[in-house]
Design a protein around this nucleic acid. Structure first.
Lengths: 208, 208, 208, 208
DNA sequence: CCGTAATCGAGACGGTACGTCGTGTCTTAGT
DNA sequence: ACTAAGACACGACGTACCGTCTCGATTACGG
């Protein structure tokens, strides 16, 4: 997971764990100040008080570095129980939108996704560090809704997984598109409209 | 629109219109071969058989150039009348996904969106050249559905516009996210599931 | 000769001749300030007000650059007619020693010679830019001495050339070794002793 | 002399004497393979099977290391008694030239001399390890010649020392210059010409 | 049908960042 | 106290693109 855990660290001076943290912190700070395209590896190293070689020993380049620096921010997303599926979804939508408004993520997320279209290892890194980790929110929301009786239990685990993927792409895609492509704010009104649409879609499926 | 239409045609040698086309064509070809991040302005000029000066006289840089080169591809999207709103939506979803699978758009779209988060003029260029142009599809689909009686007419034009924007973000966002972030194929099965969800959401809203 | 004279300069912006001069001047200045081993190509470019690429377009690296920068200094050597061969030789010895005491040459000459032992093109550059050019002094001295009747005319031109080479190696070698290896001053006393030794060697050969 | 003889042997693990030899041997080997400028301290340590720390505990850097590695080669010079001063000198000239043709010395000697122009401690090291040690040859040659009656005894010891220095600079300088700067071979013909010149110079001084 | 003027190709220019390499120091664990 | 291993801060390397500039050589149009 962390860049500094070789399978077996036997001899020699061990890698500085402080350097890891300082580099990621500096990366986030400079993303805020400069944005993705003006961010340079050299600047990050300088800001972190670290030599460029130290950075390159851990990350292959700017792409990998930024994915790791930003991934942790997505772990801040939480879905507190608001009593109903609609309220839970709306809460997460607003949280996610707020995260995308932050300059670090705003400038970096689409950039690394763009790079990943030509770099499979980067794509895998994004998937494991960001995408798959956050699917937990969909799963959690569904479990709560099922416990409340809002949603039926799905017997086929494969169908359940596909359905979760679909919901995830719809929610994340809509919020990202609204925020970064359409460049319109995700306010309570939009979140409400979107949630209503989604709830109806989900509820309709129950009745078939 | 075209980079070669000065407000007032003056004296002197006129700009070569052949150069415009050659540059955009070369840009698309090199996007396919190299991807966004390895594409260089110098390469484009060389491939187009043109001096760098000639290119820079027309476009401010790589971002603007790529937006113009790629925008035209989105105009290929069409919504042929398939008899029902669901069929129309599914058709457009599959067309849009096919477009995003093409290497030019795949590598370029997210990249320019990422750049646009720090460059307002670029954002406006993307909006006018790509985003707003394709909202026509949502509007057209709604009109057809209304004509068929599948959807009610909305009296409030502002509410209608907001609703169209929402639908657009949901459809475009979901397809983009599925394709580029989740990196899973948009096949007929997925398109069908997604369309079903969306149709239920829209239908439910009619009944309230 | 000059780095900026391609056989045929046809199209494109011509190379700046001012840059050539500024680079060589900066090289000499930095040799004085920093010495050979701390001299960096980047510093030279900065000092010359020139981009590194401009420098690298003209010279392959530090070695070639320094040879050209220093070679011109050797052209300042002159052999004014002091009335006798001994006086002429002593004069040139002192001049040459003074040149080797200058920080530019002191630090650079042995360094490029050392590099040239592994780089034939550099060796050729040194020979043509410095060594062969200064053999003129030996030839001139001999001609004057012959005109004065101090030396016989040598009929065989090949033998004459070999003899000149020998004298050159002896004079230049002794002065360089005294100055840079033994690191002792070449003062009038030493020059006088050396010249005396050499004169006797040359005179003896006349009598055989 | 040896880098591993601390004034007072203290407690703890003693330094490996094998390491000293291996490092110097590796240095010579890599000088042959790579030449001075591509020789790196890290390479030397690796080749010697030793950690960089171990090397740096013994030598301050590349310069000092190479001086020590090469100095020993100069001790191979011998002046066997060939029956006359001229023969002795010619023998030493050819031996010295052969030494300078060896790649280790060829590439290293001028390099360390060049470095020494800016580093007094290095200059002293070169003087004591190489220059002064080899003056023994001049002194020995003079003594033999005096014993044979070829040269007079010099009463003034200071004058004798200066004369020996002069001869040393002339011989060493001429051979070095011929070999490394002029880059011409020191063959028997050249050695013979040079020796003849020198003998006449020395003989003439006797007759005054 | 001639001159003015903006274009064209070519390629040099001053910059900035890249990713790598070498240096000499430091920090481990293991003699 | 030493050893091997290797991470560390630093600084230079030589290359690649950027966007601008200066050339000489082409076009068109307007007088």
């Amino acid at each position: 997971m962390s860049p500094s855990d070789p399978a077996t660290t036997r001899t020699g001076r061990p890698r500085s764990t402080a350097a890891d943290a300082a580099i990621l912190e500096a990366t986030r700070a400079l993303l805020v100040e400069l944005g993705w395209s003006k961010l340079t590896v050299g600047d990050v190293a300088t800001r972190a008080g670290v030599a460029k070689t130290t950075l390159y020993r851990r990350w292959a380049g700017k792409n990998e570095l930024v994915v790791d620096a930003v991934a942790v921010l997505f772990d801040e997303l939480e879905m507190t129980d608001r009593g109903s599926l609609a309220a839970d979804v709306q809460g997460v939508v607003l949280q996610f939108a707020a995260l995308l408004e932050r300059p670090e993520t705003r400038t970096a997320l689409m950039a690394v996704v763009a790079e990943s279209t030509r770099d499979d290892s980067l794509r895998r890194r994004i998937r494991s560090a960001i995408v798959e980790r956050q699917k937990r929110l969909v799963v959690l929301g569904r479990e709560r809704a099922q416990a409340r009786g809002e949603l039926r239990y799905e017997d086929d685990p494969s169908a359940a997984a596909h359905h979760a993927d679909l919901i995830f792409d719809v929610i994340a895609g809509a919020v990202v598109h609204r925020t970064l492509v359409s460049a319109e704010p995700v306010d309570a009104a939009w979140a409400s409209s979107f949630t209503a649409l989604l709830m109806l879609g989900l509820a309709g499926a129950q009745d078939r």
